[in-house]
Simulated assay, not measured.
Amino acid sequence: MLSLTGCGMVESVVGKTTVDYKSAKKASTLDVPPDLTQLQKDNRYALPDSGSGVATASGYAAQRASMSGAGSLASAAPAAAGANEVAVTGNDKVRVERAGNQRWLVAKASPDVLWPQLKSFWEEAGFTLVLDNATAGVMETEWNENRARIPQDIIRRTIGKVFDSAYSTGERDKYRTRVERNADGTTEIYISHRGAEEIAQGPEKEIVTWTPRPSDPNLEAVFLARLLTKLGGTEETAARTAVDNAIVRPLHAFLKGEGASRYVETDEGFDRSWRRVGLALDRAGFTVEDRDRVQGIYYVRYVADQVEKKGFFGRLFSWGSSEADKEAQRYRIVVKAAEAGNTSQVTVQNNKGEVDATPTAEKILTLLQEELK
């Protein structure tokens, strides 16, 4: 029973999650200039090299087997070294890593090379970008509807072809992509999801408002698999398998201390905590203005009680407006390794770098603990 349950859970992550986003604007194609690095071509149907000019099926199979064996040996060593910390699956260009319910890609390329490819990726997926900040390493899509969730009954298939806009799921999604440059020349790529849904209220359900819904790790996994296919030249089926087989490593976070000594403790070192806090901030809707990995500081903007003050419908269609900027307060999220043990502490400071013990700081820590637990 446990084995069958596990298979079902793995399949539900990517295999049964379908997406079909159509942007309100026509996505423009992105041509790579000749002086920049070209995208990896699909070589699945390329003829094998043969010095004699004669190619045989048995020789080709032997060549592919030797290459596959060499690749598996090359990737086995780093995976075994970090087996107790994070699961690694992928190829020699891009691999998938996972910690808890968070996944990300690690690519052997610089952010400068990857950035135009990431923009092209989201345009091909049916999105337009509302945030494109290469300096901060963050891009964010518009709100969009997943049309694949609309039931395909006989009426929908018949009338929907003509009046497609008459059907709606009542849900909207947006995605944020964040890149982190590593000291070894690789780049980590994170995709975080944010969702909204229409909720009917009132005696006769006459009032409809947009409210946040929890982020969906399955949707994040789907787009990570697609991005792995694009960047690594991996077949779609293999990419989905790589994302699904990134084994879960349970991680925990706890709220500790009181007042000015309040903090979130994670049971992992600084490197893992730093990455996961960044993704948690993206998922929780914070605006990361800057970050200093050496000091372990994220500089963020946060609107206290933003849903109650402005209403999510307003934020849905005016994200990043001047009104929201005026209401937002600046904070510092500090991540540091604990003096003893393989743990880290996450604290909140005000814009001046002073310890913040206000109710807003408590709410920020609670949000982070929910995402990190």
Score class of each variant (00 low, 15 high):
K16M: 07
F254S: 15
A99Q: 13
L367S: 13
V294C: 00
V13D: 01
K326R: 03
A221Y: 03
F286G: 11
A134W: 05
Y298H: 10
P214W: 01
L39M: 09
D325L: 10
R64I: 00
E308K: 09
K326G: 00
N342A: 14
G285T: 13
K108V: 00
A260V: 09
G232P: 00
R301D: 05
P359N: 06
A74P: 03
A338Y: 02
N218C: 00
G170C: 02
S3V: 00
N218S: 08
G320D: 03
L365E: 09
Q306H: 11
V54E: 10
Y302W: 09
E327P: 06
R262C: 01
T135E: 01
V94T: 15
Q152Y: 09
I364N: 13
T187M: 06
R149D: 14
R291Y: 12
G90D: 05
A200N: 05
Q369F: 00
L219P: 02
P33R: 01
S261F: 13
T360N: 11
R240G: 04
L114T: 04
K310Y: 04
K108C: 05
V32E: 04
Q369M: 13
L30W: 14
A361N: 07
L39T: 06
R213E: 07
G160C: 02
S110H: 12
L219D: 08
E235R: 13
R330M: 04
V222W: 08
E123F: 15
S318Y: 05
A225M: 02
R272T: 15
A70S: 09
A200R: 11
K256W: 10
A148F: 09
Y299M: 11
A183H: 00
G51P: 08
D112K: 13
R44N: 03
D35C: 14
A57L: 05
S273M: 07
G257R: 12
L39D: 09
L73W: 01
A76V: 04
P116D: 11
V130T: 11
A260Y: 06
G69A: 07
P151T: 09
T360Q: 01
A46D: 05
K93P: 07
L231K: 08
A166M: 07
A148T: 03
D184E: 10
S344M: 06
K256V: 03
A134N: 02
S215F: 03
K22M: 09
S273E: 05
D244A: 15
G320P: 13
L39A: 09
S318V: 06
K161Y: 14
P359C: 03
S75I: 06
Q63S: 06
E204W: 02
